[in-house]
C-alpha cells in the first residue's frame, strides 16, 4: 500500500543536516552537483561568475542531509558541505 499519511513520529526523528558552501569563482557550470544531489538541494543560478559560468545556488537548504556527494563529484573542488551542529528534525 502507498502511504499517504505522514508518520506520527516524524517530528521526533533526528537526522544530520549540512550546510552547502559554493566557491562560485571556481565553478565551470557543469551542473553535476545539481543533477546528482539526491535531495534536490541545488539549482542553477542566473548570475555569472568570474569565468562567465552560471554557478549553482542553494534552493532547499533544509533538505541537505550532509551526504557530501556534490563535494565528491565536483571536478573543480568548488562546492563543499559542513555539518550543522544542531541535528535537525526530519522534514519530509
Amino acid at each position: 500500500m502507498i502511504f499517504e499519511r505522514k508518520p506520527l513520529d516524524i517530528d521526533k526523528i533526528k537526522v544530520t543536516s549540512g550546510e552547502v558552501h559554493i566557491i562560485k569563482d571556481r565553478c565551470k557550470g557543469c551542473g553535476f552537483c545539481i543533477e546528482y544531489c539526491p535531495r534536490d538541494v541545488l539549482e542553477l543560478s542566473e548570475e555569472f561568475n568570474i569565468k562567465g559560468y552560471h554557478p549553482p545556488r542553494v534552493k532547499n537548504p533544509d533538505n541537505c542531509v550532509e551526504c557530501h556527494l556534490c563535494e565528491m563529484l565536483c571536478p573543480e573542488f568548488a562546492i563543499y558541505v559542513t555539518k550543522k551542529e544542531d541535528a535537525k528534525v526530519s522534514a519530509r
Binding site: 513520529d9 516524524i10 526523528i13
Partner: peptide
C-alpha cells in the same frame, strides 16, 4: 542512527517512520 533518510515504516502501516 546515522542514516539521514526517513520514510514511513511499513511494519507500522506507515504510522511510524
Amino acid at each position: 542512527e546515522a542514516c539521514p533518510v526517513v520514510v514511513p515504516n511499513e511494519f507500522d502501516e506507515g504510522l511510524s517512520s
